[in-house]
Amino acid sequence: MMAMLRQYLREGTGHAHILLGEKRAETIIHRETLNELAANNPNLNLTFVLSDPNWEWTGRIGYAQEHLEDLFDEFTERDFYVCGVPPMVVQAKNRLAELGAPDERIHSEGWEDSVVADD
């Protein structure tokens, strides 16, 4: 995803929003890099969501897929790239579909559905 984001920031047009879920702040991968990219690119928003934050956390709490409706006001004309553990990917794809995102605008690696179905 970082490679895709860097490519988009170099050559893409329009607005991008990274919604990244993690358990705790100290385990957010690429946090400093993402903060720097967002600070230097007015067309990039960044939202972190923590499922098990410490008392100092003032950001969003829960799971990333639970915050989609709060963060985005339009789902039919936007592309969504979903990456993560299989249950989260499946839940996020399902929630995006419920919110009106067309199937062709929801992108993931594609193997997650069968892994979750096998559990």
Rank of each mutant, 00 (worst) to 15 (best):
M2A: 11
A3W: 06
A3S: 13
L5C: 11
R6S: 08
Q7P: 00
Y8R: 13
L9Q: 10
E11C: 09
G14I: 08
H15M: 12
I18E: 02
L19C: 04
L20N: 05
G21T: 01
G21L: 02
K23P: 00
K23W: 02
R24W: 00
T27N: 14
I28F: 04
I29H: 14
I29D: 05
N35A: 08
N35I: 03
E36R: 14
L37G: 02
P42G: 12
N43E: 11
L44F: 03
L46Q: 05
L46V: 05
T47I: 08
F48G: 00
L50G: 05
D52M: 15
P53T: 03
P53N: 06
N54M: 12
E56M: 13
E56D: 15
E56W: 07
W57C: 09
T58G: 15
G59S: 11
R60L: 13
I61S: 06
G62Y: 10
Y63S: 10
Y63V: 10
A64C: 09
Q65R: 09
E66D: 15
E66H: 12
H67K: 09
H67W: 15
H67V: 07
H67I: 08
L68C: 14
L71D: 00
F72M: 12
F72D: 02
E77N: 14
E77R: 13
E77H: 11
D79V: 07
D79I: 08
F80I: 06
V82Y: 01
C83S: 12
G84F: 01
V85Y: 07
P86Y: 05
P86D: 07
P87Q: 09
V89M: 11
V90W: 00
Q91D: 13
Q91I: 10
A92F: 03
N94P: 00
R95F: 01
R95M: 14
L96R: 01
A97M: 08
L99S: 07
L99N: 10
G100H: 03
P102Y: 10
D103P: 03
R105L: 12
R105C: 10
I106A: 11
S108V: 06
E109K: 06
G110H: 05
G110Q: 12
G110V: 06
W111P: 02
E112G: 04
S114C: 04
V115T: 05
V115G: 01
A117D: 14
A117M: 03
